[in-house]
Design a binder for these strands. Structure first.
Lengths: 256, 256
DNA sequence: CGCGATTTGTGCACGTCTTCACAAGCGCCT
DNA sequence: AGGCGCTTGTGAAGACGTGCACAAATCGCG
């Protein structure tokens, strides 16, 4: 997080949608709630209690209620939440009512996979352009889109309003691509390259690094191994679990 | 995070490596420091100050120093940190001294990309097996590895000790795959499927969901758009920035 | 040998996030 | 109408993470 320290506009209950200024941790969980809600809607549920929804989203029910309370009071005591209404509200807050155009830069290994990922279209996004710096890749068609040269970014941006840029290039090229994205007015970037990006204030960057995730898991693996290596006193640290398959509570959502 | 509430072994300064029990937030940043340190080592730096390293890793220098202090005192006042020594220490803490075997389940769009991702080998991991449930995919060779059927998981696990499982299947199959991984003794899972996994206590799950990352960006985009829509009083909320390109401080590392 | 420049390591205060526990509110049944 | 069970929404407390600011430690130089 961070880079969200826009100081101005303190309260300013705007005439438009209210802008509740949610805690960052809450924002990071809303998409997970949304996914769970869509599942429930598809299986015919009309209402859902905080207990059920929190289980489906893998969080604590009190946390869920507090998160939702930040959006306003959309639940009914004694009953629960109206699934359809809640979906609408969350999509509204997340700004998913408009289908945002995403520019994907770098159609290598990972870029190819992202270009073919159907989770974008299903969740309020549309890949508007595929770009690459390698001339031999320009012209290739992936999933109905033709790869264009990254220097054509300005042209692409002129054709339609790009909301988000995704960087799936090697680390060495990432900063330059970020600069180009910023230059054409992109203010949100999802960076898959293993490097830190410098961007002007007001531009949001989120980073996804597969190697980092594995290394974090490695730490816990290492730690667990060291623990079992010392049988110590009490015993039954990892073995002899009570019921098994306890509800895993958080599972983290990368962000934060 | 969570699922790390192994209660036992309070202090227990073990004979082996010490097990300092680091804060989760620190663990999440260590890999980023490690990457920055490798960059520095490659460019010939022998020592580095907390200021330089923190800039390279995109964090606050005080935070960096506090993080490193949790590992012990490996810096020299007035001088900085020895790059090589620090790399060793961090790799040691993260358990990267042993090359861990990763099983990748699901060789669809994303799985293919992950199988070809060279960031694994370069960072202490080795893809030991590719697995899929689709018989038509079994036998395919990707990057020198032959895809095996997911039901052969037990055989694979018998051949070598699997440390980490990566799930890159559709959401519908993910829980079953997780169960199979757990059954053969895997205690760390990286889940790319957009769903919550139930696993026994003692098993760590980290989740990476591309759609969620985009939705979080969408929220901030939406928020920025609403702010500029109301010129309000003070003005210059996003426009007329002072210097531009300020050091972006965090940029988040998915997981938390 | 002593002094100043530099940089680490950390005490402390602050802000954010989480969790418990319970009052307030809603619907259903009698 | 009234009471009862259920569920939301929230106050308060505690855990956790962050960042400032400074003392302690080290090096280099005169």
């Amino acid at each position: 997080m961070s880079q969200h320290r826009h100081p101005g506009a303190p309260g300013r209950a705007g005439a438009v949608p209210a802008l509740p200024d949610l805690p960052e941790a809450t924002v990071a969980r809303l998409p997970e709630y949304l996914r769970a809600l869509h599942n429930l809607a598809d299986t015919g549920h009309e209402t859902v209690s905080s207990e059920e929804l929190s289980a489906a989203a893998g969080v604590n029910s009190a946390k869920l209620r507090k998160d939702l309370s930040h959006l306003g009071s959309y639940g009914t005591r004694g009953v629960g939440y109206d699934v359809t209404l809640l979906i609408e509200q969350i999509e509204n807050v997340l700004g998913l009512t408009q289908r945002r155009a995403v520019a994907l830069v770098g159609v290598g290994n990972l870029g190819h996979a992202l270009a073919g990922y159907d989770g974008f279209a299903g969740r309020g996004f549309r890949i508007a352009a595929l770009l690459d710096a390698d001339p031999s890749r320009v012209g290739e068609e992936i999933n109905g889109l033709v790869v264009r040269h990254v220097d054509d970014l300005a042209t692409v941006a002129a054709e339609e309003s790009l909301a988000i840029g995704v960087i799936a290039t090697p680390a060495a090229a990432a900063q330059q691509v970020a600069d180009q994205l910023v230059a054409v007015g992109v203010t949100s970037i999802l960076n898959f390259a293993p490097c830190v990006l410098s961007v002007p204030e007001g531009v949001d960057v989120r980073k996804v690094d597969l190697a980092i995730e594995l290394q974090i898991l490695s730490f816990h693996e290492h730690r667990k191994a060291s623990l079992t290596a010392l049988p110590a006193t009490g015993g039954s640290a990892l073995t002899a679990l009570p019921g098994g398959f306890a509800a895993t509570d958080t599972q983290e959502a990368i962000g934060t």
